[in-house]
Nucleic acid binder design. Structure first.
Length: 572
RNA sequence: CGGAGCGUAGCGUAGCUUGGUAGCGCGUCUGGUUUGGGACCAGAAGGUCGUGGGUUCAAAUCCCACCGCUCCGACCA
């Protein structure tokens, strides 16, 4: 490809819409352009990189035995009603109507479609296992699209669905996908960590997320250098110390005045001096069935994903101040669970047997001290509800845990029979008995992966593409583009030779000053630049410059071999 | 949806407080000089100042409404 024949609209200045470096570089390097919030056009260069990611995904999925197919993006709402997700996923579903006013949904994911297909086509254990995948555009009515391709209303996802006869077989399928994902991200040049994850609205037994460590990531992962434990913070647990107030001498509850004290923090100060770990934090939530109380130690934070697990539902919200006052007779800041029997009380494990605690009195301006949880509070459900923090000892080995922000690029789930049961994907087993297929589902955000590569691999001058996903592997930069010049003739020859050897090459034939061409090639981030100018040519040399390495003078006749060698060894 | 901020030429922005001819840089076009790290000179094109309404002799500027974008939170590949 000749630079002047394609469209690479690089920008010197950063458009105001971009906040994080990968988004800025996607725009500046001329890879994408925004149509409107959350919707982007891939320009020729961006599309080439995207296709390379897709191809890696395709190759690894195929070699893991998965079968590619393509399902409709437009789906009938009936199958979503059948699976129950028409309600549970309604917030992300784009809905459209046809001319007959019939409603359709734009697929945010395809469990319903694939399960419907399998219900019709697979009837026997002899046809299992099967794993189907597609690379396709998904639509999600995101609350807030952001960071360019990172979270968009429309994005490209690879989604795969495994069907097995037994739970054990399903675990094998899961493992195969886990391994395939590891290879895919490795080939994309990404450092990823696989973490234990919460299953969220997808449902299922357990799951792993593939995370790219990055400060700009939207997730937090907790990991241990000692034993390799790694989990999404929503799921992570740690070995935390028992309440220090445990040994406090038992004494009767005492109410005391705390005018104006509305926070844990305020109660830690004089004249009260109650340490946060001697306080009980009382949160009031509204669930469908009514009001519930959540108790945590004063210095702990609620993990809402864990609360979802404890409550058995994801439909809850913090109660409004009026609702709280109606329920407990006090406002936030003076709340407590002592003597409360009307509402279900959920408490974090860390409060078990805690004594000598201080909590709100359910009377504005008053607190209670000398509270013993076991004696004074009727806790209905005990569970782990707290957010893990950096430095806490690892659950498995006791080493201090670390916390790191990360970008989620892949997520794999074991679904069990949830969808196969709802959509009648049944088969006959060896004994002639009807069974629901055991499913797994496996997603990769392809467009997001592309951006994650940039987020993880760049410098002040621009993108540093790994060879595997670079839009072009080599950029040839002649400093004189007059067709009859020696420089241009040599450039053309190298271009032809490399192309003949199967290398993706772009020839920067623009009649621009060297500085402009060097800056652009570095901004776009081609892995190798071959510079040809009068000075080097006078010595019979060209300049081979790896994007992230030092310039290498190479004899003209060895240039092609040198480039091929670099691609094969140093950069692959 | 709640909170914050911003909409002026393709991009980045000044002007708004205190109403009075819409300015600068980059990019684009023409001519010339240049040619190893985002050149220089001369000239040129390009603007519904987000949209609608209001106040006023006069609105980019003040007021109201709406729309859009960005950031923080809930959602997620």
């Amino acid at each position: 490809m000749r630079w002047s024949d394609t469209l690479i609209p690089t920008l010197k200045e950063t458009p105001a819409e971009a906040e994080i470096v990968s988004h800025k570089l996607l725009l500046r390097a001329g890879l994408i352009r925004k149509l409107t919030g959350g919707l982007y056009t891939f320009l020729p260069l961006g599309l080439r990189a995207l296709r390379k990611v897709e191809q890696i995904v395709r190759e690894e999925m195929n070699s893991a035995g998965a079968l590619e197919l393509l399902m409709p993006a437009l789906q009938p709402p009936e199958i979503w009603r059948q699976s129950g997700r028409y309600e549970t996923a309604r917030d992300v579903l784009f809905k459209v109507r046809d001319r007959a006013k019939k409603e359709w949904v734009l697929g945010p994911t395809h469990e319903e479609v694939i399960t419907t297909l399998v219900a019709g086509e697979i009837n026997s254990y002899r046809q299992l296992p099967k794993n189907f995948y597609q690379i396709q555009t998904k639509f999600r009515d995101e609350i807030r699209p952001r960071f360019g391709l990172m979270r968009a209303k429309e994005f490209i996802m690879k989604d795969a669905y495994s069907f097995d006869a037994t739970d054990e077989a399903s675990q094998v399928s899961y493992r195969k996908m886990f391994d395939a994902y590891t290879r895919i991200f490795q080939r994309c040049g990404l450092k990823t960590i696989a973490v234990e994850a919460d299953t969220g609205v997808m449902g299922g037994k357990f799951s792993h997320e593939f995370m790219v460590p990055a400060e700009t990531g939207e997730n937090e992962v907790v990991f241990c250098d000692g034993c390799g434990y790694a989990a999404n913070v929503e799921k992570a647990a740690s070995r935390v110390s028992a309440p220090s107030a445990l040994n406090a001498t038992p004494s009767t509850i005492e109410k005391f005045a705390t005018p104006g004290v509305l926070t844990i923090e305020a109660l830690t100060e004089a004249p009260y001096n109650v340490a946060a770990d001697h306080q009980i934090k009382t949160l009031v939530y509204k669930v469908e069935s009514g009001i519930v109380l959540i108790l945590l130690r004063g210095d702990d934070q609620l993990n809402e994903a864990k609360l979802t697990g404890a409550l058995g539902t994801a439909t809850f919200r913090p109660a409004e101040p009026e609702e709280i006052f109606t329920a407990l007779g006090a406002h936030p800041g003076s709340l407590g669970a002592v003597g409360v029997s009307k509402f279900t009380v959920y408490a974090d494990e860390r409060l078990r047997s805690a004594a000598g605690m201080t909590t709100g009195a359910n009377e504005d301006g008053f607190h209670l001290r000398h509270v013993a949880v076991d004696r004074d509070i009727h806790v209905k459900h005990w569970s782990d509800l707290r957010l893990v923090r950096a430095g806490e000892p690892c659950l498995k080995c006791g080493q201090p845990l670390k916390v790191q922000r990360a970008i989620e690029v892949g997520h794999i789930f074991r679904l069990g029979a949830k969808y196969s049961q709802a959509l009648n994907a049944l088969f006959l087993d060896e004994a002639g008995k009807q069974q629901p297929a055991i499913m797994g589902c496996y997603g990769i955000g392809v467009t997001r992966t592309l951006q994650a590569v940039i987020e993880q691999s760049h410098d002040d001058n621009g993108i540093i593409w790994p060879v595997s996903v670079a839009p072009y592997t080599v950029c040839i930069t002649p400093l004189n583009v007059a067709p009859d010049s020696e420089v241009m003739k040599r450039a053309e020859q190298i271009y032809a030779d490399l192309t003949a050897r199967g290398v993706d090459v772009i020839l920067d034939d623009r009649n621009d000053r060297p500085g402009v061409k060097f800056k652009d090639s570095e901004l776009v981030g081609f892995p190798i630049r071959v510079g040809i100018g009068e000075k080097s040519l006078a010595k019979g040399e060209v300049e081979v410059k790896p994007r992230a390495g030092a310039l290498i003078p190479v004899k003209l006749e060895q240039a092609v071999e040198k480039v091929l060698e670099l691609i094969k060894h140093t950069l692959a």
